[in-house]
Simulated scan of single mutants.
Amino acid sequence: MTFKIMADSACDLPLHFYEEDAVVLFPLKVNLNGEEFEDLKSISPSSVYDAIRNGQVPKTSQVSPVVFKNTFTQMAENKETGVYIAVSSELSGTFQTAVMIYEQVKEEYPDFEMKIFDTKCVSLGCGLIVQKAVSMRNSGENLAETLASLQFYANHMEHLFTVDDLDYLAQGGRVSKASAFIGGLLQIKPLLHVEDGKLVPLEKMRGKKKLLRRMLELMEERGSDLSSQTVAISHADDEQTALELKNMIIEQFHPKEVYISAIGAAIGSHTGANTIALFFLNSKE
């Protein structure tokens, strides 16, 4: 029996992925100039970056409970099962809202069963997990087998990323204001990673070239069986650097694939432009 796959826009996969691979999209919301937009659907990342450059501060909010309610109710009525692959619960309240709505729907439909999966990942770290779920579903794997593999991916997903200005992450409460102050004061590029679903500053250094080389050093230290992996890079209005990093990775590690996608409006509201993020597994499945 096949199963439904759902994901939110914070996994930074392009809109056509959801449409072509039969994945239900739960869009996060972006508030700009007093207007509310749906990430991927009614606002572009470039609109967010232009607004930030002009001194505006976009706000984001979690997926609408109504969207969850409608989707889960329809699944229950159709006797469907599935998995919602959620962005880290440490970075968004979307996971908790989905759990709450699921419990409400289950009261009305006691036989309704689905999985709400907290990836503890963000951007394409979460996106790679969604792609794995699609691959397994399309290969005929059942939900239980798929969930076991997704848990492995979530447990072993490495995130390495840099932002131009930590102040944006600090304003949204994603990193401490002290970390942001130090980064801004010294005019250096921070390197961050994810620990248990939280964004954690790792190192600070000067110069893009040096930073990209350091990302590859950490990739070599942490990665496992990189030649058989799909590695992912997400970027915020900086495709040139993403392609540069891709070529460096191919030359050094020869992965199965290097997948590049733009950071969406919701995540971009917190990172600002010129963010580069790298994702890979630190253990062999």
Rank of each mutant, 00 (worst) to 15 (best):
M157I: 05
H159Y: 08
Y168S: 08
H156Y: 01
N155E: 15
A154P: 05
F161T: 05
Q171W: 07
A148I: 08
A154W: 01
V175G: 02
Q151A: 12
Q171R: 15
L143M: 05
A144H: 13
M157T: 15
L147P: 04
A154T: 05
E158R: 15
L143H: 05
H156N: 15
Q171C: 05
L166D: 05
H159P: 01
Y168W: 13
M157L: 07
Y168N: 15
G173H: 04
A144R: 00
Q171M: 14
G172E: 12
A154H: 01
A170K: 00
V163S: 08
S149W: 03
V163G: 06
A144V: 14
T146H: 02
Q151C: 00
D165Y: 09
Y153F: 13
V163F: 06
H159K: 11
T162H: 02
T146E: 03
Y153P: 00
F161P: 02
Y168M: 11
H159D: 08
E145M: 10
T146M: 14
L160I: 15
V175W: 04
E145G: 01
Q151H: 09
D165K: 12
A144D: 15
E145T: 14
L143V: 05
N155V: 03
V163H: 03
A170W: 03
E145Q: 15
S176R: 01
M157G: 00
L150S: 03
R174S: 06
D164V: 13
L166I: 09
G173I: 11
S149M: 10
E145R: 08
E158S: 08
S176N: 04
T162S: 15
Q171P: 00
H156G: 09
L147C: 10
Q171E: 14
Y168T: 11
T162C: 12
T146K: 00
A148G: 11
D164Q: 10
N155R: 08
A148Y: 01
L150P: 00
A144L: 12
V163L: 10
R174Q: 09
R174A: 07
D164H: 05
A170S: 13
G172T: 12
S149T: 10
Y153V: 05
